[in-house]
Each structure stands twice: as C-alpha cells, then as structure tokens.
Computed example of a mutant assay.
Amino acid sequence: MPAALAGFLALAAAMGIGRFAFTPVLPLMQQQLGLSLTAGGVLAAANYAGYLAGALACTLGRPQPKVLVRAGLAAVAVLTAAMALLPNFTGWVVLRFGAGVASAAVFVGVSSLTVAAGSYAGVGAGIAVAGLLVLVVGQLAGSRPRRGSRSGSSLRC
C-alpha cells in the first residue's frame, strides 16, 4: 500500500501542477497580464509537446523509475515556480515545455513502479487540488489587474 500512496501523491503533484494547473490559472493571467487566448494556447501546446517529447525520451535506454520520479517532481516544481519569476512569454513557452517533459517522466516512472497498485487516481486528485488552490489564491488576491499592466495588450502572441 505505501507504493500506491507514493504513486498517488507523485501523480497528483506532477499532473496537478506540471500539466493541469495552467487551465485554472489562464483566466487570471488574461485578466492580470493581458495574456491573449492565442498566447494561452501556445503555452498549453508547448506543455503537451513537452509531455510527448518526455514520454518518447523515456522509451530510450533503460531509465530508472525512481530517478525519473524524483528528478521529474523536482523539475516540475522548479519550472512551474520559475514562471512567476520570468515575465517573458518566450521563457514561459520554454518552461511549460520543460514542465511537460518532467510530468511525462513522473508518469512513466510511477507507472513502472506502481503498475499494480492503482495509483492513477492521483491524476484526478491533482487536477482537483490544483483547481481549488487557484480558486482560493485568486479570491485572496482579489483577481484584479496589477498596477502598471496594460489590460488586453501586454503579453500577446
């Protein structure tokens, strides 16, 4: 049972943050930073392309599942947090791609370690928790445009 719980938590973190947290954050980015729908689509596509590249890369050689999970979780956290520190659209595309690669590494690693343990519920739990966190943070922050932002024009693709 510890393997199932570890897999559940790893998938919740990697998928909830690395892949699906962007969905509920997008409206806040549009409102506060002027991110266009096209730019949001580019960021989402970069993440999915990274996920595909990461999954394909995991088929090469003999990756160690525990290394994939640990390195992937660390990378997801660092790359996602870096978006808040880098107010540059091109940089965000690179970071979202990298987070996709890292999410795929976690998924492949967890799948290898817990294939019979039933940890896949972690994906849904991660999506739910990420959505709730964004809702709470958005409410606490007041969801209003930042001072100095030009609503509708600053981060266009």
Rank of each mutant, 00 (worst) to 15 (best):
A4L: 10
A4H: 07
L5N: 06
L11R: 00
L11K: 00
A13E: 04
A14L: 07
G16E: 10
G16F: 12
F20T: 03
T23G: 02
V25N: 01
V25W: 03
L26P: 04
Q31L: 14
Q32F: 00
G34V: 03
L35I: 14
L35T: 10
G41Y: 13
G41P: 13
A46N: 01
A46L: 09
N47C: 11
Y48Q: 06
A49T: 09
Y51P: 04
L52H: 08
L52A: 13
G54W: 07
T59Y: 00
G61P: 01
R62G: 05
R62P: 01
R62E: 11
P63V: 07
P63D: 05
P63R: 08
P63H: 08
V67G: 01
V69M: 04
A71G: 02
A71Q: 14
G72N: 05
G72A: 02
A74W: 10
V76P: 10
V76F: 08
L79G: 04
T80N: 13
M83G: 11
A84C: 02
F89Y: 05
F89V: 14
V93G: 03
V94S: 00
R96C: 06
F97Q: 06
G98V: 02
V101H: 08
V101D: 10
A104F: 07
A105C: 11
S112A: 15
S112H: 14
L113E: 02
L113I: 05
V115K: 13
A117C: 06
Y120W: 14
A121Q: 15
V123K: 01
V123P: 04
A128F: 15
V129I: 15
V129S: 01
V129E: 03
A130L: 09
L132E: 07
L133N: 04
V134C: 10
V136D: 04
V137F: 12
Q139L: 12
S143Q: 10
S143R: 08
R144C: 09
R147T: 11
G148Q: 04
S151Q: 13
S153P: 00
S154T: 11
S154L: 11
